[in-house]
Amino acid sequence: MPIFRKPFLKNIVSKTREMPEGLWTKCPSCSEVIHNLALEENLRICPKCEHHFTMGSKERIASLIDEGTFEETDAKMTSVDTLEFKGVATYTNRLKSYQDKTGLTDAVITGTGKIDGKPVGIAVMDFSFLAATMGSVVGEKITRIIELSTKKKMGVVIVCASGGARMYEGMLSLMQMAKTSGALARHAEARLPYLTVLTNPTTAGVMASYASLGDVLIAEPKSMIGFAGPRVIKETTHQDLPPGFQTAEFLEKHGLIDIVASRTKLRGVISQLLDYLAPATK
């Protein structure tokens, strides 16, 4: 459906007809047309229906971490085409095009920072980069920030989003599940808090590793969260899926996650949890 339909134009001054593309966004949930600036200011939440739009990793960090305290780690780490993957497009080309498109090096940003003055290690996945699939770089950066946090006796917050393991790196991708989970085992043995934020969508290999391992699992409203994709489940089981299947609310009802929190409350919730779960030594 076109964005610039007549009913909307009525409310807009005529000049806006020449406005550059990408200035307005239509809410997929309630069809409200929102000015991008207003959307950004509202943490990319629809002001009318509270639909949570996908949030970029940089914006996410800005929304969670105290201003001026974020120090990025492994910012320049990039993926390699170890398998020399021969498909319809080469992995190297795919990486290049996503790097150009997003300005990111790969699908996760990691670093240290403070939340209300409390030091944490943080990783934020970015769905705009190859569906935030996990390859060696994502696994390595996340493992390193967990290990660093264990060493510095800090809690870890991971904001997850992912289509799963990255096919282009074959089994090396799958092994990132074991690697990250292993680092979390040691972090847990040191009695340090690990908080997971599940955003839309968090699935497959990421869900079956660090995304499920938080001391507390927090999810954004209506996020799609699951192991297998709904289409695969339907095809395999020939079964109708229950209403709301694999949404954050569905998981909450089934006892699989702790808290469904609106993005506006997220920072406060994390801060409070860190207060409760922080190690006795400050």
Binding site: M177, S181, G182, E189, L213, G226, I233, T236, Q246, L256
Partner: peptide
């Protein structure tokens, strides 16, 4: 990949095994 498997958190069951097997 089934409804019951998702409802009983198959992802978590696998994730916990990865973590626990490591130690």
């Amino acid at each position: 990949p089934g409804v019951g498997a998702e409802e009983r958190h198959i992802a978590e069951a696998i994730a916990v095994n990865l973590r626990e097997m490591m130690v």
